[in-house]
Design a protein around this nucleic acid. Structure first.
Lengths: 239, 239
DNA sequence: CGAATAGTTGATGTATCTCAAGCAGGGTGG
DNA sequence: CCACCCTGCTTGAGATACATCAACTATTCG
């Protein structure tokens, strides 16, 4: 019995392309021209489709209306590092230069609001929103560098699960009222491993171990229940 | 003979505090009130002084006029991760929330331009400068996540040396005209190790190895000469 | 000159990776 | 409807890159 399967929502029907078809089709073909406002387009994509690839022109900004996206980079020999996991409300596509510095791929079926980069940067409000998002991202990447550079496999997995358990709530700031949480992973072991700088097998072993110790409990197919989030926090060496 | 010693420029004489004195003195005492423009102050600090600590109120922005700074985070048990190495022209102090998410410490004697965060964010030009800097930082942290998550000790050190060899030039974009470079490290082995997610001993061993293979040559006390930067690039698995 | 600090090098240990086999669930088609 | 296959996951055994521990050397500074 797999206790942590990736979700297959398959709720989006707008786009008929398969993943591979989308990769070979001109990008513009995938725009849904439904305007949500001046100069804003919406875009729907299935699970595991590529939004843009490293090196593509970085002329558009994406805001996640629903769904989830991962950003990653590849080394020439195939090693992959998943840099960030993004969810509802997050902005992506803001690279340093003219080209994207990483690839963006959906984790589940997702909807995006797409705006031209120049338009977004034109208004003060847009600038502020971008800045806010960049700062959040920076803070996360700092925390993640600590994880990758200095934490053990066990601490890495615990930190990741804790992060998933707190979810978007962590942004709101207030500590959650309850000590229990339910996690929906929506990621494969490979994706988790590539995010945490580990191998598939190590991730699997650590999660098995954490389950054996009762810190998380399998709860249906793609869900983990965390009876006491504080136990996870203790394992993860967050201060 | 140590071939890679940290620089001790000791060119700044404005501040009389020792490192420890500065740590215990109220932060405001260290401001040099010489105004360089409306609401801009300058600040000089010695080598290895702390500019701010994780948790301090993030109400000021710092721009490096000269010198170098590292940002780092600590785990409760003393493990440290050096997140970024900053130099002339770089901005720092822009954390996500109201408090700094990391500590900033000078690597060498440095001068800063200090502005109130609200003032900097008020102008469009300021916003743009901040955004530009944040984006550069993001790109670097992405690259560094690949290093920490997926590269071997050898690749990490080579990547780091390559980064130091290219120096600020990497921002200009154009490939350097020459294949040779000289690196001034201005960092201790411990700082390098904490940046690369390694131990002091591993860094030392790898550098010794790279020297033995002739890829870098000791050149005075704190300098490394790189006869062919392309050899470093090959070692570092950059694409 | 001698103590203190930073760096190097060697011997040994171990956390994680690698390789390999087996298992579970979900979909497909006979 | 059930057997089969495919994919993703788990588990074990063995290998290894890097950490740890420890001794030594070089450099700086008083």
């Amino acid at each position: 019995m797999t206790y942590l399967d990736r979700t297959v929502p398959e709720s989006s029907v707008e786009i008929a392309f398969t993943r591979h078809a989308a990769e070979f089709a001109p990008r513009a073909d995938r725009w849904d021209e439904t305007a949500t406002g001046p100069r804003a387009k919406t875009l729907r994509m299935r699970e595991h489709e590529i939004v843009f690839e490293e090196g593509d022109a970085a002329d558009r900004l994406y805001e996640i209306a629903d769904g989830a996206v991962m950003l990653y980079k590849m080394l020439p020999d195939g090693r992959r590092q998943v840099l960030e996991i993004l969810g509802q409300g997050d902005l992506f596509g803001l690279s340093g230069g003219d080209a994207h510095d990483c690839t963006a791929e959906t984790l589940s079926a997702s909807g995006f609001r797409v705006v031209d980069r120049r338009d977004a940067e034109a208004s003060v409000a847009g600038q502020q929103k971008i800045s806010l998002c960049l700062r959040d991202r920076l803070t996360f990447l700092h925390e993640h560098a600590v994880l990758l550079g200095r934490k053990s496999a066990c601490e890495r997995v615990a930190t990741f699960l804790l992060w998933m358990a707190l979810g978007r709530a962590r942004r709101a700031g207030g500590a959650p009222a309850t000590n229990t949480a339910v996690i929906r992973l929506a990621m494969t072991r490979q994706e988790i491993a590539d995010h945490l700088g580990l191998t598939i097998e190590t991730v699997s072993r650590v999660i098995s171990d954490i389950r054996r110790r009762g810190i998380v409990v399998a709860d249906g197919q793609d869900r983990l229940r965390v009876p006491d989030v504080r136990l996870l926090a203790r394992m993860s060496s967050v201060h």
